[in-house]
């Protein structure tokens, strides 16, 4: 009985120690990435290549999802607002929900599964095939040469993708609301413009997406860099990237929202 309890507690302790240890490693990893970022900006071509890999290649999924999310919001919002005879508020509903929440969060979730997993798999395989060690042999710092450009590429891409997601979503809401269901076009845009504030809504949305971008990229890079150099290890690390960054996005979203939108009408 006591033996079993002690065993359980030991297991719990080991897990917590392991988690704290990994968190510390990830923080050191972030600091190292920032310190060795100089190369990325001196040779900006490296970053541009990563903007292509994580940003441009995620465009299709982001744009199509944004359009559909906006269209669904338009349909659902219309149904509910119609009950109260205020269909004109559809623009406000679609724009505010996209700019404040859905744009940054859904774009970040898609980005984590599309670009984050790719980054982890790439870095993990580079490590498994000892490409990172080879770089070190050639006196090239793998963090400066491989990690930092990917970090900045993804961090630059994320807010842009979120903005495109929101813009596409508003367009989708417009398509369904105004073109399909016949909400008055003038009221749709003017009520939206009256309700959406640049500083409080749009800038806060961009800040959110930038924070998510840093979190996803850090998790993806660290999981890849830390992955056991085996096929199974890389596959597990890729799965963990998607799960951990999705949870991190949602938790961070709650924290950021509670700071940003307290008392904003």
């Amino acid at each position: 009985m006591m033996e079993g309890l002690a065993h359980g507690l030991r297991k719990l302790g080991a897990r917590v120690v392991d988690a704290v240890w990994r968190l510390g490693m990830a923080s050191r990893f972030l600091v190292l990435t920032l310190i060795y970022s100089g190369t990325s900006f001196r040779r900006f071509q490296l970053v541009i290549k990563e903007v292509f890999n994580s940003g441009v290649l995620s465009l299709i999924i982001i744009l199509v999802s944004g359009l559909f999310v906006g269209m669904v919001l338009g349909l659902q919002g219309y149904e509910t607002l119609q009950t109260y005879g205020s269909e004109e508020a559809l623009g406000v509903l679609v724009a505010l929900s996209l700019v404040r929440e859905l744009g940054p969060v859904v774009a970040a979730l898609l980005f984590a599964s599309r670009a984050g997993s790719a980054i982890t798999a790439e870095i993990g395989l580079m490590k498994a095939t000892e490409q990172l060690s080879a770089l070190e042999m050639m006196a090239l710092n793998p963090i400066a040469r491989v990690i930092a450009p990917r970090f900045w590429g993804a961090v630059i891409s994320m807010p842009m993708l979120a903005a495109m997601f929101s813009a596409m979503g508003v367009f989708g809401g417009y398509l369904v609301g105004v073109v399909l269901l016949g909400v008055d076009e003038g009221a749709f845009w003017s009520q939206m413009q009256a309700a959406v504030d640049f500083r409080d809504d749009i800038v806060n949305g961009i800040i959110k997406s930038a924070v998510f971008g840093v979190a996803i990229t850090l998790i993806a890079l660290f999981e890849g860099y830390d992955a056991p150099p085996t096929a199974e290890g890389v596959s597990r690390a890729t799965t963990r990237t998607v799960v951990t960054s999705s949870l991190a996005i949602l938790a961070l979203d709650f924290v950021l929202t509670s700071f940003m939108f307290r008392g904003v009408g």
């Binding site: 541009i48 903007v51 292509f52 940003g55 441009v56 465009l59 724009a95 700019v99 891409s157 807010p159 842009m160 993708l161 903005a163 495109m164 929101s166 813009a167 596409m168 508003v170 845009w189 939206m192 413009q193 009256a194 959406v196 504030d197 640049f198 809504d201 749009i202 961009i206």
Partner: peptide
């Protein structure tokens, strides 16, 4: 491609700032 991407991102931001926001 990256140029197109960044331009599209900025265009989306402009759209949000001027057409969606006030």
């Amino acid at each position: 491609w990256v140029g197109v991407f960044v331009a599209a991102g900025l265009a989306a931001l402009m759209f949000l700032a001027f057409k969606v926001g006030s």
